[in-house]
Design a protein around this nucleic acid. Structure first.
Length: 453
RNA sequence: GUGGAUGUAGCUCAGGGGUUAGAGCAUCGGAUUGUGGUUCCGAGGGUCGUGGGUUCAAUUCCCAUCUUCCACCCCA
């Protein structure tokens, strides 16, 4: 009892049926990425801590999983230091590696490291797990997958457009109705500048990001609590209460921040992107949302977030432009833009809405009942023939009771069972049973393939 | 880091200071040795999270601790 096996907090095992569905999501996403000319890379699960530390803010450093050095990691440590219980100082001496926290920073490291081999603009995708020592809760895990697509080494806003086209296609293929929310950090900076609080942009955006979650009053409360002057908060009100379609919102905000050059830059970027998207007439609704801020502070231009229209679960995809992510690793002046699909949340949305196609989860199409040695040998060539025709089939390995074998087929979700005993062998026939309808018929063994087309 | 719940069979959960702790599902066997998913009968499976305390007696009451879950902060 007490020593029942278990897995670490916030991690999950995936059963065969869960994996089938997860792979359906990954394959769909991957397929779209490839269609747009993106190339896959992978990076190690662990990175040097020096690569990871300080990239995600103070909070992020705490959420990094750190890996103890191999060997006698205490051998070079002065016992006095251990007794000082200064854990952050001690950590740097006993741990030099950590698990990756996202895919973007390792990607930046990769780009810098291989800058001479990479053909820019570099369009890469990466689908791998990341780890965060967060406290787990609903829809939130310590190990989860990200599916990142980024274009690095191009300032063109066509990249922003392309990423939204990708979002449009992926969710169309998966059958999830979504809305893409889009904003621009430059506009947010312009707002902060206009109300005279340019340095407080982070506090301001974090607060207004919560608008649709906690409401206007609470947002104002939080702003005041964070020391934003009443005047500034008052000036913010018309911005928080913008209404109308995207064009109308842009015009209103333009009037407010007309004196901020960075803000106006953001407006023109936004107008350009929205203009092209309009011309493309995508299926997906694009909504300019000036309250969208997103936490990661390396974003400098467009920011996106995708939400399901039918399931309340937070964002299922997010991203934006970062002008200088590689700068911290010594490569200046390289701009990138990217988005990340949250596979785990997409899974939750699709299960709730029952969107997984039935054939995404079927494995064996035909199971051969095993009657004994003679029958086994008779069946093997038939199995080979089916497999070379691309039909997945298997023979039950033991000559157990039919009841047990049928039960196996049933539990495994196998749709057809082939029964070959003495009767069938003598006549070159196969009895095929449909496990869903219970219907059963005898056919010629060499005509089997045609049943599965 | 803060707050709230939780822990009894492989799983989901009931129960109760006093002989031998229950149910459903799952597993195995039988009814049925060429037919599953339905039905009926039977069997196996538990140190009641861990440590301590109160008591003649604790799985039950009390305290601590750990686990898992939920919310906040933050995030995908």
């Amino acid at each position: 009892m007490a020593q029942k096996p278990s897995i670490p907090k916030g991690t999950r095992d995936f059963s065969p049926s869960e994996m089938a569905k997860r792979n359906y999501i990954f394959d769909t996403i991957k397929g779209v990425f490839k269609l747009f000319g993106f190339q896959q890379i992978e990076t190690p699960a662990m990175e040097n801590l020096s690569t990871l530390m300080g990239k995600y803010g103070e909070e992020g450093d705490k959420l990094l999983f750190k890996i103890l050095n191999s060997g006698d990691y205490l051998s070079n440590i002065n016992p006095v230091e251990i007794n000082q219980s200064n854990s952050s100082k001690l950590t740097s001496k006993i741990s030099e590696k950590g698990l990756r926290y996202d895919l973007t920073v390792p990607f930046a490291r990769y780009v810098v490291q291989y800058q001479n081999d990479i053909v820019f603009p570099f369009k890469r995708y990466q689908i791998q797990p990341v780890w965060r020592a967060d406290r787990p809760q609903k829809g939130r895990y310590r190990e989860f997958y990200q599916c990142d697509v980024d274009v690095i080494g191009s300032d063109s806003l066509m990249n922003e457009v392309e990423l939204i086209q990708i979002v449009d296609q992926v969710y169309q293929k998966l059958g999830i109705k979504v809305v893409v929310k889009i904003n621009n950090r430059k506009i947010l900076a312009g707002i902060a500048e206009t109300i005279g609080e340019a340095e407080r942009i982070v506090d301001i955006t974090v607060a207004i990001d919560k608008l649709d979650k906690i409401g206007l009053e609470k947002v104002n409360e939080e702003l005041l609590q964070n020391g934003i002057p009443v005047d500034a908060v008052n000036q913010l009100q018309p911005i928080l209460q913008l209404s109308g379609n995207n064009d109308e919102k842009l015009m209103q905000i333009e009037n407010v921040i007309a004196n901020s050059s960075i803000g106006m830059k953001g407006i023109s970027e936004m107008r350009y992107v929205l203009g092209i998207l309009k011309a493309l007439s995508l299926e997906t609704e694009i909504e300019l949302d000036l309250t969208l801020a997103r936490g990661l502070n390396y974003y400098t231009g467009a920011i996106f977030e995708v939400k399901s229209k039918e399931v309340q679960i937070g964002s299922i995809t997010g991203g934006g432009r970062y002008d200088d992510l590689t700068g911290i690793f010594g490569l200046q002046g390289v701009s990138g833009v990217g988005i990340s699909f949250g596979a785990d949340r997409i899974y939750d949305v699709m299960s709730q809405l029952n969107l997984f196609p039935e054939d995404a989860t079927t494995t064996t199409q035909l199971l051969f009942v095993n009657f004994g040695e003679k029958e086994q040998l008779y069946c093997l060539p038939i199995l080979s023939q089916l497999r070379s025709a691309g039909i997945s089939c298997e023979m039950y390995p033991d000559a157990d009771k039919i009841k047990k074998q049928m039960n196996y087929a049933n539990r495994k979700g196998v749709k057809y069972v082939a029964i070959i005993g003495e009767n069938e062998m003598n006549n070159g026939k196969v009895t095929i049973k449909n496990m869903e309808t219970g219907e059963q018929k005898m056919v010629n063994s060499n005509g089997l393939n045609s049943l599965f087309n």
